[in-house]
Amino acid sequence: MADFPDDLRYTTSDEWVRLEGDEMVSGITAYAAEQLGDIVYVKLPEAGQQIEQSEPYGEIESVKAVSDLKAPLSGEVTVVNADLDQNPAVINDDPYGQGWIFRFRPSNPGQYDSLLTAEAYEAKTKEG
């Protein structure tokens, strides 16, 4: 079953964000990974790429379907998880750990506070 770690914030489009010093790390939630099924391809952003909150920065494909990846906050990509290129299924296995997608430097860190808490996000997934 999907889990919802307390130390993360969440978007309504099923991304998670973790604060790590001045930077933040993001990926997709266990709930989203479960809904997608076997993830077979991630079109990653590039380091240096500017991202804008709620705008697509990449794509994620499962056997069945393709979805946009949306930026949880605005900022600049600093590092991407290049392992996903060879092993995208790690997102299914460990969405909050080895399945992280990218690290970024937020241009407006205050946006973090507007994201959903674990409790609010979990409630949202139950609404369907």
Partner: peptide, 8 residues
């Protein structure tokens, strides 16, 4: 049923 465990 779409899938039970994983399509792959």
């Amino acid at each position: 049923p779409l899938q039970y465990s994983s399509i792959i």
